[in-house]
Write a protein that binds this DNA or RNA. Structure first.
Lengths: 209, 209
DNA sequence: ATTATCTATAGATCTATAGATAATGC
DNA sequence: ATTATCTATAGATCTATAGATAATGC
């Protein structure tokens, strides 16, 4: 019985292959959620996409909710990776604009998380706590970014804490408009318009005041 | 056989009662959709809420999709009623602020339509065309409102058409933040902050130019 | 006759559990 | 031994159709 270790070639052997499988499944899950939402996503549909039976998939994620949690955790890591600059300082405002531009090239991912966000407001949805916490963090980050650029008051007189939820709301709200009608909506341009609105009357970085 | 017309007392008789039933069903459907989204809403759950069997409900709306369409049409009427001022002119910007204030007292309805909006970005969702069209209309209305207040340029230099999608995005985006964490988010205040941002440097109504 | 409801039920799914079988790696 | 998969299947649902029965209003 062929004792050749054809898997020895690449590092981890069993665990590494398993890890790869897991990631394939997560990618497939995101795609299916983008198409049908979480409630509409069947385990079979995800399994089929990676060439497994539904029961085979449950070997990797024991329940449907566990699969969703893993999807959300993956996003968390991805977010953290992007959002935490080496030094740990806040993002400058312009980086938000480039994030929006980046998102405009990844319709699938935006769709996955917009669908989940929508579902998450329904009762007892397993992603609810994730989004609640995420918004808390993301509003804080945005406030820090605005404070970095403008100090304690924006040109229009708002505090960073007042403007931060608006910044996030525009990002999310524009995603829905864009997903529903990509031809009619220029998402990056709309976000740049918001930035110019926030900066109006003062282009430079904030002084200390 | 009691020939008494106990229903003769109020106008329409059979049709009127039927119409009432329909409206009860629509209200129940909105409540169930708020709780579980459209895909998660079962006809039985809606029927139970109005004291009918699932099959009894199908007498009024022949399919689940037909029920959703009726819910959306009801919203359309409601919107139209509110949005169209007697003369047919555009809303002033302040009326948007009061709409947001009103929405903040109607968590259930906001939740119904936020859940539907989220689902609508998934493939082949029966509410997709409704929302696509609605945003088109609503952006146009907002642009008209901004033009009415500011003329061809807002204080920050944006055109009404550039600012309109932002206004709508803030309304929708804030709804999600608010639904997920009503304690942490003051939705009407956030919207007023946007209004002040749009008006910064010019308080009065636009002159002609 | 028409309208409002109900019971019965077909036909699809869906998630999750049980338990078998094969392959892998110590 | 552990890991990866599979087949079989229980137990819930869900939507929609068929067809019966009762009540209503001309």
């Amino acid at each position: 019985m062929a004792e050749q270790r054809q898997s020895g070639r690449w590092g981890g052997g069993r665990e590494a292959r398993s890890e790869e499988r897991r990631e394939d499944i997560l990618r497939a899950a995101m795609a299916v959620i983008a198409e049908r939402g979480y409630r509409g996503a069947s385990l079979s549909a995800v399994a089929e996409r990676v060439g497994l039976t539904q029961q085979g998939l449950l070997h990797y994620f024991p329940t449907k909710a566990a699969l969703l949690v893993a999807v959300l955790e993956a996003r968390d890591e991805w977010d953290t990776q992007r959002a935490a600059k080496p030094g740990g300082e806040a993002w400058p405002l312009d980086l938000y604009a480039s994030l929006v531009e980046y998102n405009a090239t990844r319709q699938g991912i935006v769709q996955t998380f917009s669908a989940l966000l929508g579902e998450s407001v329904t009762e007892g949805h397993p992603a609810q706590e994730f989004f609640r916490h995420r918004y808390e963090v993301v509003r804080d980050d945005a406030a820090a970014a605005l404070r970095g650029e403008f100090g304690e008051r924006l040109p229009g007189g708002l505090t960073p804490e007042q403007a931060a939820p608006l910044l996030i709301a525009v990002m999310d709200g524009m995603q829905f408009q864009w997903l529903l009608d990509p031809e009619a909506v220029d998402m990056p341009a709309a976000f740049r318009a918001l930035v110019s609105l926030l900066r109006q009357g003062n282009q430079g970085p904030a002084t200390d005041r």
